[in-house]
């Protein structure tokens, strides 16, 4: 499979006057291939949304590179964006559609980008599992799940080669979550596009992703095939993340606790970023950062 999106040693910094510079993304590398679904998971504040926004040019890279189909991604300025092959579905279903415009008109914007004269907005609504006649309605008539489907329809109308979902399901009802996630996967895969799916919910990512990337404090600490990571997580952080998910098995087992808080990204710990919370911490972890993959941990140093 050819490389669709290539992120190489990306650094994104947030600057606020009078505050220390925050490295939200501190040297992350990731690849998404055509037709592949990559799930990016991590706790809030780990930089996964910043990374996603950098991919579409909403955040500026301080260093490192992002390239889409071999072309470097430029920050979104005032000029018209020509790179419409990457589309994004955002988190908040109540902010992702223009409240003043009919749903059909908003989907038509996407069709126009793709130069698609044969499909109608109603066709796309059908593809995301909504009735065709919704096209003439306004967003406020819909539930969160329906809005998110409409946002997906609009993004897909532009025929993207890469679809990015920035926590697209975290604001939805539990039952709608896996439906919308599965829908996104199916539509992306069937159109041959890649999907970068960002979520803090590992159980949903597991359901739809071919590969999982785990992010901690601005770095990707583990990448691997979903089934492998799920069955045998190698990075201690991934282990903690999986161990913390309570299982609905009715057994009354309290999930394992990961001690401590996520450190301040403005002042990350020396050496491995996870070492203050790591149950398996060694001497080397305190001094040297593991700068290798696919598992950035001194226990799994590639030989």
């Amino acid at each position: 499979m050819s490389s669709l999106l290539k992120i190489d040693d990306l650094v994104v910094e947030h600057r606020t006057p009078g505050r220390p510079v925050v490295r939200a993304v501190a040297g992350a590398s990731l690849e998404v291939r055509a037709g592949e679904v990559v799930g990016l998971v991590g706790e809030s504040g780990c930089g996964k949304s910043t990374l996603a926004r950098a991919v579409v040019g909403l955040n500026r890279a301080a260093s490192g590179s992002i390239s889409f189909e071999g072309t470097p991604v430029t920050p979104l300025g005032l000029r018209r964006r020509t790179m419409t092959g990457v589309q994004m579905v955002f988190q908040d279903p109540y902010a992702s559609l223009n409240p003043r415009r009919r749903v059909g008109d908003q989907i038509a914007d996407g069709l126009r980008v793709a130069g698609d004269a044969t499909s109608s907005p109603a066709d796309l609504l059908e593809r995301v599992g909504l009735p065709r006649e919704f096209a003439s309605r306004h967003p406020h008539e819909f539930s969160g799940g329906q809005r998110q489907r409409i946002a997906i329809a609009r993004a897909l109308a532009a025929r993207p080669r890469l679809l990015i979902g920035d926590e697209p399901i975290s604001a939805l009802d539990a039952s709608a979550q896996s439906q919308v996630a599965t829908l996104m996967r199916d539509l992306a895969v069937s159109s041959g596009a890649g999907l970068l799916f960002i979520s803090h919910d590992l159980s949903v990512v597991r359901l739809i992703a071919d590969r999982i990337a785990v992010m901690y404090l601005g770095r990707i600490v583990e990448v691997g095939d979903t089934a492998e990571v799920w069955a045998e997580p190698r990075h201690p952080y991934t282990q903690a993340l999986l161990g913390a998910i309570p299982k609905p098995d009715g057994m009354g087992v309290l999930p394992a606790e990961l001690p401590g808080d996520v450190p301040d990204p403005a002042d990350p710990p020396q050496g491995c970023r996870f070492h203050p919370r790591c149950p398996l911490v060694m001497d080397v972890c305190r001094v040297k950062e593991p700068e290798f993959g696919p598992v950035a941990c001194w226990l799994h140093e590639p030989s």
Binding site: S178, R206, L207, D249, G252
Partner: peptide, 26 residues
């Protein structure tokens, strides 16, 4: 009791809720 409702639900709606969980499908 927890173990009964989550493991042997009586009501069809409880069964739907449990079935919609990502774990149930995998």
């Amino acid at each position: 009791p927890r173990s009964r409702v989550l493991r042997e639900p009586d009501h069809p709606y409880t069964r739907t809720l449990l079935a919609s969980l990502p774990d149930a499908e995998v």
